[in-house]
């Protein structure tokens, strides 16, 4: 079958010379240095944020720059807050599970599908309605203090 062998070898690389998965994944040394530097920067930034997030968790509800309400994350009874945004209302519920957006006027409903948030630093955002729900500690982040 000499013809078939020739055609096959024209279109398919020889399996013995096919590089391993590692060959495709390793990148050059420049790529690896870039990855290392990036990861170091991210971890440093992340740990800095985590160190600064402490205290009693409070739910802050914003529309754009305006602070609409602040509630404790673990209220005695469930709280339902209706935030008026750019395209309509976003209903926010705070209960024993945490905080979530239960209803939104946006089309994608991604904010509703995001579910509960219950840790300091977590956020829920509805971009079309310009509503942000942020869980913050009573101790303020240095970044916030600077921006105020």
């Amino acid at each position: 079958m000499p013809i078939r062998t020739t055609l096959t070898s024209m279109h398919e690389p020889d399996p013995s010379s096919t590089p391993s998965l590692w060959h495709w994944l390793k990148g050059t040394w420049v790529d690896r240095i870039l990855l290392l530097l990036t990861l170091i920067t991210i971890i440093m930034g992340w740990s800095w944020i985590q160190q600064n997030l402490s205290g009693t968790p409070m739910v802050h509800i914003y529309h754009g720059k305006s602070l609409l309400a602040i509630y404790p994350l673990h209220p005695d009874k469930p709280i339902h807050f209706q935030a008026k945004g750019d395209i309509g209302l976003s209903e926010i519920t705070i209960d024993s599970d945490g905080v979530r957006i239960t209803h939104s006027s946006c089309v994608s409903q991604r904010c509703v599908l995001s579910g509960h948030r219950h840790r300091i630093g977590d956020i829920l955002a509805c971009v079309p309605n310009r509503i942000l729900v942020s869980i913050q500690g009573t101790q303020k982040l240095a970044l916030d203090a600077v921006s105020e």
């Binding site: 790529d31 991210i42 992340w46 754009g64 971009v127 310009r130 942020s134």
Partner: peptide, 23 residues
């Protein structure tokens, strides 16, 4: 849209995921 700096709290974990998908 949001105009709140608290938004950036979410950035570091997403950047880690971006590193993985980008690579």
């Amino acid at each position: 849209f949001i105009q709140q700096i608290a938004l950036y709290y979410l950035l570091p974990p997403l950047l880690v995921l971006s590193c993985a998908t980008g690579w």
